[in-house]
Design a protein around this nucleic acid. Structure first.
Length: 411
RNA sequence: GCGAUCAUAGCUCAGUUGGUUAGAGCGCCGGUUUGUGGUACCGGAGGUCACGGGUUCGAACCCCGUUGGUCGCCCCA
């Protein structure tokens, strides 16, 4: 590779072949399932004013403080490539008056950007599918969203992941719990890992997630959210879990599952590969395949009226890894031109075949004698070879092949 | 931001304690063979050994730096 050839940007990927097919399969399955659940498709800008993310995610979060691709446009405005979908969708909801459609169920997918160190299942430009229900305060919205996620994973053939579910309670419950956690961990602060000591200041809930062996002994006895739930919050969570049971969605309670962003309330969830499963091995240290929760506080932080909402997002690359490489489908027909004088005939024929809805490929370059072998290697339902003296030459062991109807004259 | 590890042909990789002109398989291109056929054989193109410095009579190999890949930590999908 000469130094003159430009390199791809770190953390971006050029997806091709079987990997690209897996990627497309994830997106196609998502599109199909989202229609079943009547989620409406939305297309969102890839960039927004920086404040859209800064205000909704919070200035102090890692995402905003060190992971955003922000830049000034020629008018001097600070813009940011979207690091997630939710903030932009919330902004659109407010600026377009989509309140009139509430409760609004929307779905989208596309690229997102985060300046992070790349590793397995993590990229600087990555892709997500995303589903949101905006303007629905009732737990049934959570249930429907989770049922959709569950069906999506099953339709993708991913059966070794489980829904891990928690509640963060309403604002008051959450604050009380947070205060109790701080009190609790303060008493043993000196024995915690450096990271957790820092988290104690910035994001105490996160300590519960710690993998550090120094923190583990203190996690089991840490205060539980259940003790701080208001009656309404407890009832809300009970409605979600019984709804999931009714929908046939398997779940486990994950008391230490929290969300990094402050706007989350009530339901928080992640689909995580089962321990020791093939999916767990495929994902390495990136365990979450799909995650989300209820973000009733978000609209206010963008200056809108209080609006309840729930949503989730899933990394397409991660899902594609679990789906595995998917081979590209062989063509219905390959036409091999072994006689260069018959190129025009081949072009006419192949056009016909394609107009009838069959996939077809033309091989008319390289050494004429090797073209047929090339076709065999590539594989097709039917291979038709136009050869100098044999006139009509068709090779297939598959009399059922549909293309043969169009190729009647060549039988 | 921190740590580990790697970088040789389009791809997958050999390359001995530093020592002539850097190799193989696959792929690609051409030829011969076969002739309703994924055959076999012959030949060819393609490499500033990631980049930049240093040590040495001599560096793909040793040292430093840079860039990038991979895998962890943090954080997150």
């Amino acid at each position: 590779m000469s130094k003159k050839t430009p390199q791809a940007i770190r953390g971006t990927q050029d997806i091709f072949g079987a990997d690209a097919e897996a990627f497309a399969f994830v997106v196609e399955t998502f599109e199909r399932v989202r229609r079943l659940y009547r989620f409406r498709r939305v297309e969102m800008p890839v960039f927004e004013k920086t404040e859209v993310f800064a205000r909704s995610l919070g200035e102090t979060t890692d995402v905003v403080s060190k992971e955003m691709y922000s830049f000034e446009d020629r008018g001097g405005e600070s813009l940011t490539l979207r690091p997630e979908f939710t903030a932009g969708i919330a902004r659109a909801f407010l600026t377009n008056g989509w309140q009139q459609y509430a409760p609004l169920k929307v779905a989208t997918h596309g690229p997102l950007f985060r300046y992070e160190r790349p590793q397995k299942g993590r990229y600087r430009q990555f892709h997500q599918i995303d589903a949101e229900v905006i303007g629905a305060a009732e737990p049934q919205a959570d249930v429907e969203l989770l049922a959709m996620a569950d069906q999506l994973l099953k339709d993708l053939g991913i059966n070794d992941v489980t829904l891990h579910l928690n509640t963060l309670g309403d604002g008051a419950s959450r604050e009380a719990w947070r205060a109790a956690l701080i009190d609790y961990f303060r008493q043993v602060e000196g024995q915690l890992s450096e990271e957790s000591q820092e988290r104690l200041e910035k994001n105490p809930l996160r300590i519960l997630d710690s993998k550090d062996p120094r923190d583990k002994p203190f996690l089991a006895d840490a205060p539980k959210i259940d003790a701080f739930l208001s009656e309404e919050a407890a009832a809300f969570f009970a409605a979600v879990t019984s709804g999931l049971d009714a929908a046939g969605v398997k779940w486990v309670r994950a008391e230490s599952l929290v969300r990094g962003l402050d706007y989350y309330r009530h339901t928080a969830f992640e689909f995580i590969p089962d321990e020791g499963s093939a999916s767990a091995a495929a994902l390495g240290s990136q365990s979450t395949v799909l995650g989300g929760g209820r973000y009733d506080g978000l609209m206010e932080s963008l200056g809108g009226a209080p609006t309840p909402a729930v949503g989730w997002a899933a990394g397409i690359e991660r899902l594609a890894m679990l789906v595995g490489a998917r081979e590209e489908q062989p063509a219905d027909l390959i036409i091999v031109v072994e006689d260069d004088a018959r190129v025009a005939e081949a072009i006419g024929l192949i056009g016909d075949v394609r107009k009838h809805g069959f996939t077809a490929e033309l091989i008319a370059s390289g050494s004429p004698r090797k073209r047929y072998d090339k076709a065999v290697k590539r594989g097709a339902e039917v291979i038709l070879s136009l050869r100098p003296e044999m006139g009509r030459g068709i090779a297939t062991d598959n009399p059922e092949a549909g293309v043969l109807g169009v190729l009647g004259a060549y039988r």
